[in-house]
Amino acid sequence: MKDIVYDYRTINYLVRDKWAVLSGVVIIAYVILGLISNFKFADYALTATVSNSYLPPSFDSIELIFGTDLFGRSVLLKTLCGAYTAIKVGLIAVFISIPIGVVLGLVAGYFGGLVDDVVVWFYSTIASIPNIILLIAFTYVLGRGISSVYIALGLTTWIGLARLVRAEVMREKETEYVLGARALGARSSRIIFRHVLPNLRHLVTVTFSVQFIHAVKAEVILSFLGLGAYGTPSWGVMINDSKQELVRGIWWQLAAASGAMFLLVLAFNVFSDSFEHVWDPKVK
């Protein structure tokens, strides 16, 4: 029964929710545009043409729609390649942190006892270090570069999910169908993979959105602090550049990077809201 709920009802609800569809379309558009521009224009986006320095936005050509930066590079192309960087950071960070969170939460919740104590101690410890400081320390230690950012994010953001999964597994463990399976002689591995794990999908999906947003925002802040992206187009680097440009009235780089980030984060926020409503109609 629970398996069917995920497949039909969830998708059915999401398709009928026009906001979910719209935000899904926006996210997919970002992914496609980011991929295309990264593979087609990444070199071009970083090629300097000094004579075109700080051209204001104009409709003369598509590349000039958001103007150019100090080195005459198209802000539009930089923004699109920045989308690729943001999505890459978000995805890799999430793919590191979700398995850690699920496995530790599952093990702690299912086996309890000493294992549980150790896992809880471990995540309480990491949760006691303010996340932004831990991220800074991590990226500082690992050295500047975009790969430090997603390793740092991946290794520090699994705690919320581990907590949720642990609580959920502790609850699942006492449900009648799990007790029933055990009475029929099912081994732990079968109970975990067949019965418990499928029921964690909604937690994982919602966490995915939340952590993706967190990763995108953190990338921008770390790049801004000079600890993140280096030599790759990034919204954080663009916003950092615009700090000096604003006083001279050059606003387009800031506007393009912030606007692009706003829309992506908004789409994820709306999507995770719709998803949560499908799963928990009480939260309204």
């Binding site: 921008v220 802040i221 916003i239 006083v247 912030s258 809201d273």
Partner: peptide, 22 residues
């Protein structure tokens, strides 16, 4: 609230400092 949450922190700061203060 959702709109406000989605605006990048740096955009708020730069905008506030540039428009309201400068």
């Amino acid at each position: 609230s959702v709109l406000g949450m989605s605006v990048p922190v740096l955009a708020y700061i730069l905008f506030g400092q540039y428009f309201l203060a400068y």
